[in-house]
Amino acid sequence: MKKRNEKIIEFFLALSGAITVLTTIGILWVLLYESVLFFKEVSVVEFFTDTQWTPLFSDKHFGILPLISGTILTSFIAILVALPIGLSIAVYLNEYAHPKIRQTIKPVLEILAAIPTVVYGFFALTVVTPFLQTLIPSLAGFNALSPGIVMGIMIIPLISSLSEDALYAVPKSLREASYGLGATQFQTSFKVLVPAASSGIIVSVILAISRAFGETMIVAVAAGLEPRLTLDPTVPIATITTYIVQVSMGDVPQGSLEFKTIFSAGMMLFVFTFILNTISARVKKKFYHKYE
């Protein structure tokens, strides 16, 4: 009797775990199934080569490139902000700062990651854009630059935290050997520690890019919802995620071709982030065996 109860409990616990597998299968199935229906009506060639994305207009074009360019542009700006700042903070906290300072600053920075993203959108639109317009008068009210920068600020703690963990994991002997040879903190950090921790740092950057690709609300609020194939950060653009939001907020009938576009766009986003996450998992696996 006791034994049977134990088995039943184990079964239900395993079942709960299985729900996560069902989630993955569900995501793959939904994206594939609806994308196949979409590609029955729109040719794959048009999808990847047309330079316009206008499913909601009467003159319909289904080229995903403008959404991809918008996604890459905002993410690129975000990484441009977050990588140098995040990495500098990581090196500073790990090598220069007093342990007490490190203990205080880390959680304070992590508050940045706890703020809901729609709030960052408000900040981008009402503070950063007007400020940037005083520097760049030609900057449009909606643009890629401002949400990109704000997104960068949001992911600073992601990079600084994970990179700092990687730097911290470098064996003390390496650091001491470097100081023993008379190196400065700067030389020790950038010639010994950063190279030794490079895989961990790369993982943090890949995760940050993946996070930026999937980021929705900052861009939805401040970038303008206008799909445009451009690398000009001063004009309104749209990203894959904001397009999905735009369709969801409108009154597109479910089951129509316009409705199916969100699944094909979602598929692209899923593929991009999946590739990035897989790379980071690979790098991470290698890294964990490095100093054992």
């Binding site: 996560t20 597998v21 989630t23 993955t24 569900g26 995501i27 939904v30 994206l31 609806e34 995760l207 993946s210 690709f213 999937g214 980021e215 929705t216 995620t241 999905i244 939001v245 969801s248 969100i262 699944f263 979602g266 986003l269 899923f270 982030t273 999946f274 990035l276 996450n277 897989t278 980071s280 998992a281």
Partner: peptide
Amino acid sequence: INITNLAGIPSIIYGILGLEV
């Protein structure tokens, strides 16, 4: 492996799953 992957999927994709299912 699956849980690690799920944690990296953008939240809006979960929205698409919820919409369909």
